[in-house]
Simulated scan of single mutants.
Amino acid sequence: MGEKTRAVRGATLNVESRRFNLPQTEADGDWLDARGDVDGAMSPLRTTVIVEHPRTILTRNTSPDVPFDRSINAYRGCEHGCIYCFARPSHAFHDLSPGLDFETRLFAKPDAAELLKAELRKPGYTCAPIAMGTNTDPYQPIEREWRITRALLKVLAACEHPVVITTKSDRVVRDIDLLGGMAARRQAAVAISITSLDPRIAMTVEPRAPTPARRLAAVRQLTEAGVPTYVNMAPVIPAVTDHEVEAVVAAAAEAGALGVSYIPVRLPWEVAPLFRAWLDEQFPDRAGKVMATIQSLRGGRDNDPGFFSRMRGQGVWAELLRTRFRIARAKHGFSDDRRRLNLDCSCFRPPAGAQGELF
């Protein structure tokens, strides 16, 4: 891989979006090109963080595809730079590109913990597991300094409120002191995303995420601390990572994971052209095969947004993938990954109000 194509970022360009009035830009003279380069020369793209002060922090959903109805996202955008990330199109809502902007122009919500307390104090609030990491990673690199995820976990631990975390970072083990205690009360579970065991492929697909070895080590540490931990091979990319299905399941079992799940790659909205450009640069020898297989999974399109089918795909390739996972899971003693986590909501107590905190 030459210097020009090194995977310092995931996207190869800043794709435009017109869905939310993202302004169109024009190339002119010495203006930055799609990579952020001047006159085609490589220049580093620095990460910037914008402080956001939302009015609420809980996001509700009614999707039949997911086993939770509420989630928290401490950050917008994600520095991990995963080319396939289905959350990329959300950046267009801020008149930013789902491409390189999504990876380099991030939003942090430092008021998140206080907003969560306010939500949990509401008289009509009913406790149910909160999901973290459903849109952008709660343990992406900027969490090291901002520590918003940890602040949220402190609130949930104090209130004995259950949480489910999805991440592809081993930084989650930093919070074992909180997660271990919550897990002992059946109030926490973690899913670690491992797309590939090959560090070269992982670096290309997820350029700023920790290596697969570090993620597997995190699975072991969490499991040893009593935290129910799962591995999610999401997404599976045809002709890029699908040959590793059995190896990922075996590695998850060896690390002590309680289960393994998967999702075929999804390419909603602007993710499709970004993914195609990435394929042309990183895997030009198989780009056509990859997209043909994805379209066979998605009813002839780049993406299928339909409930139920979007998470599993359709057709021969989808059925083959299901069969391979079923056999691999059975071989290593894993049960059906569709079972719901049995987290305890019965001990929840709302956080004290202002007067309760003073006296």
Score class of each variant (00 low, 15 high):
207 P>A: 02
150 R>S: 08
121 R>V: 02
201 I>F: 01
143 E>D: 14
171 R>M: 13
103 E>D: 04
157 A>F: 06
191 A>K: 13
173 V>P: 06
204 T>N: 08
182 M>A: 11
104 T>G: 00
134 T>E: 15
117 K>R: 15
193 S>K: 05
109 K>A: 09
130 I>F: 04
119 E>D: 11
124 G>N: 14
219 V>P: 01
117 K>Q: 11
160 E>D: 12
89 P>E: 04
94 H>W: 14
158 A>H: 14
141 P>C: 10
106 L>R: 01
138 P>D: 10
162 P>F: 09
145 E>A: 11
215 R>M: 08
149 T>G: 09
141 P>H: 07
150 R>T: 12
184 A>G: 14
150 R>Y: 05
188 A>S: 07
176 I>A: 06
150 R>G: 10
169 S>K: 10
160 E>Y: 08
118 A>Y: 04
99 G>N: 11
213 A>M: 11
94 H>P: 00
167 T>E: 04
212 P>T: 00
153 L>C: 11
107 F>S: 10
177 D>L: 06
166 T>H: 06
90 S>E: 09
202 A>Q: 12
174 R>K: 12
131 A>C: 11
96 L>D: 04
137 D>V: 03
172 V>E: 09
111 D>M: 14
200 R>W: 08
179 L>C: 08
87 A>C: 09
91 H>D: 03
150 R>E: 12
185 R>Q: 12
132 M>K: 07
207 P>D: 00
156 L>E: 06
132 M>P: 03
116 L>Y: 07
160 E>T: 13
181 G>R: 15
161 H>G: 07
202 A>S: 15
170 D>L: 05
140 Q>C: 05
182 M>H: 12
113 A>V: 10
151 A>Q: 15
144 R>P: 01
156 L>A: 07
137 D>M: 02
125 Y>M: 10
206 E>R: 02
194 I>A: 01
155 V>N: 03
121 R>F: 02
188 A>Q: 03
211 T>H: 11
139 Y>N: 02
180 G>W: 01
94 H>C: 09
219 V>G: 01
150 R>V: 08
210 P>Y: 05
144 R>S: 05
89 P>G: 06
164 V>N: 10
203 M>E: 12
122 K>Q: 13
113 A>C: 09
103 E>H: 02
110 P>V: 06
207 P>W: 00
155 V>D: 03
205 V>M: 11
117 K>E: 12
101 D>M: 03
178 L>S: 06
205 V>A: 06
97 S>E: 07
91 H>I: 01
182 M>L: 13
